[in-house]
């Protein structure tokens, strides 16, 4: 096992095929610790499938995933989460019938306390509540802890989502198309949240919105038809022919990425 010191995620020859259809085709990728890494690609490129395999929702046909030096290929979603590999959900799947505080509390509980204790304990429960409030504060949603999540706006739900992720004390966060359906203001607020995340937490974002990608990412990987076709800094990707081809079928660099600034 030869993983470098700085790499927290090491994907080797990862493949997922459904019969004759290969959704993820021998993808090899490394993400450094603390990196801000984006995964982009046109529709049908296999981003969602790759995401599912990384999160543990799908099982790879072949290949390996090393997280923090450990082979996690066979681990379940819950086990990966306990190891620090936390994901968000594309369609906000909060616990809608429960309050904001309870939602974040569930996430805090899991990592610090006793989620299966069948009686309340004033001191310990207070600690959980305080921790939850801290996380809510860091995403800027202190105002309504007892509101039901079902009553929140889309952007507010996203904030709760991020607070929950933080509460899991992740080493790496996988964001699954986080700005889908967001307004400009909400997208900006989301970008601010990501920018304010602790440096030691690695961020991997699967995204469609290229503005966000170029604002947040330090490294970009591009998938097309299940294969990794490019991997580099945003600037390198911007000028990469294969990428343009994959997105547009022609070399229309500026149409896709806008005037290079």
């Amino acid at each position: 096992m030869t993983t470098t010191d700085t790499s927290i995620l090491d994907i080797r020859d990862l493949t997922l095929s459904f019969g004759s259809l290969t959704a993820v085709d021998r993808v090899t990728l490394r993400v450094d610790e603390g990196a801000r890494h984006a995964l982009i690609g046109p529709n049908g490129a296999g981003k969602s499938t790759l995401f599912g395999v990384l999160a543990g929702r799908l099982r790879a046909t072949s290949g390996q995933i090393f997280f923090n030096g450990q082979d996690v290929t066979a681990l379940s979603e819950a086990e990966r989460a306990r190891n620090g590999l936390v994901r968000t959900f594309q369609h906000s799947s909060l616990f809608l019938g429960m309050s904001v505080l309870d939602n974040v509390g569930l996430a805090v509980e899991r990592s610090t306390s006793q989620p299966k204790r069948p009686w309340p304990s004033r001191r310990r429960d207070r600690a959980v509540t305080d921790a939850a409030m801290t996380h809510l504060e860091s995403v800027g949603l202190l105002s309504r802890p007892s509101a039901l999540c079902g009553a929140l706006s889309h952007g507010e739900r996203r904030q709760v989502e991020v607070a929950m992720v933080l509460a899991c004390e992740p080493r790496m966060v996988l964001f699954d198309e986080p700005t889908a359906g967001m307004s400009v203001a909400e997208t900006n607020r989301f970008a601010e949240i990501v920018e304010s995340l602790p440096r030691k937490v690695t961020v991997v974002v699967v995204e469609h919105d290229l503005d966000i990608v170029f604002r947040l990412a330090e490294r970009v990987s591009v998938l097309a038809a299940g294969k990794l076709i490019a991997d580099g800094t945003p600037e390198e990707i911007r000028t990469n022919d294969a990428v343009q081809e994959a997105y547009l079928g022609t070399s229309s660099n500026e149409a896709l990425f806008g005037a290079a600034s």
């Binding site: 979603e77 936390v86 616990f95 019938g97 989620p115 069948p118």
Partner: peptide, 24 residues
């Protein structure tokens, strides 16, 4: 009103999500 009660409501409202948070 206990943590288990909250986890139970979590199962009701989104068991998959609860698992993704790391809970058994």
């Amino acid at each position: 009103r206990s943590p288990l009660g909250r986890s139970m409501r979590g199962v009701r409202d989104g068991e998959l999500r609860l698992r993704a948070l790391g809970q058994n």
